[in-house]
């Protein structure tokens, strides 16, 4: 049996402390230990992006990150971004364009999209397509996802003072 390590993470603004096995992946910790089931596992290989969460403000694959690696750091999940209202415009754009069907990839897609919106406000459609190409969606065919992100990118750009 592996030793358990005391791990403290600030998850969506709330500090939690748990004893975890070193091998526990961050996404499993969030889902099973904290009940934050909005982040999903699908490929468990770092390919599909369904487990994407933020650690200290940057997106990571929750299936390639260990929970103990997040010790002392801040983790944000889809639940946190929803409650804070940070991506309300993005969620509304996805809703309006039906840029999701089964919704399993959607939390990860939104986390990645928000990263794009924050770090590349001048992105072109091709750059959006490229940036999002690490998130697998098997339902939509991506066009509506790109449309939604592009619309929010333009709206946020226009809302920002020059």
């Amino acid at each position: 049996m592996n030793p358990m390590l005391e791990t403290t993470i600030t998850v969506n603004g709330t500090r939690v402390t748990r004893r975890v096995e070193p091998r526990t992946h961050l996404v499993d910790f969030l889902r099973e230990e904290l009940g934050l089931t909005g982040s999903h596992t699908a490929c468990e290989h770092g390919v599909c992006g369904a487990c994407t969460v933020r650690v200290d403000g940057e997106i990571v694959r929750g299936c390639l990150t260990l929970a103990v690696q997040a010790n002392g750091r801040a983790v944000d999940t889809i639940e946190g971004l929803s409650d804070s209202g940070e991506i309300r415009d993005l969620q509304a754009a996805f809703h309006e364009r039906n840029a999701l069907q089964c919704g399993f990839c959607t939390p990860g897609v939104l986390m990645t999209a928000q990263e794009l919106l924050r770090t590349r406000p001048a992105a072109t459609r091709d750059e959006i397509r490229d940036f999002m190409s690490g998130n697998l969606c098997r339902c939509t065919g991506y066009q509506s996802i790109l449309d939604a992100i592009e619309a929010v990118l333009i709206a946020r750009r226009q809302a920002r003072p020059a």
Partner: peptide, 13 residues
């Protein structure tokens, strides 16, 4: 728009 898509968009499916 699908009303039931909202919960999926918030990770509350």
């Amino acid at each position: 728009p699908r009303a039931n898509a909202k919960r999926l968009l918030e990770g509350r499916g």
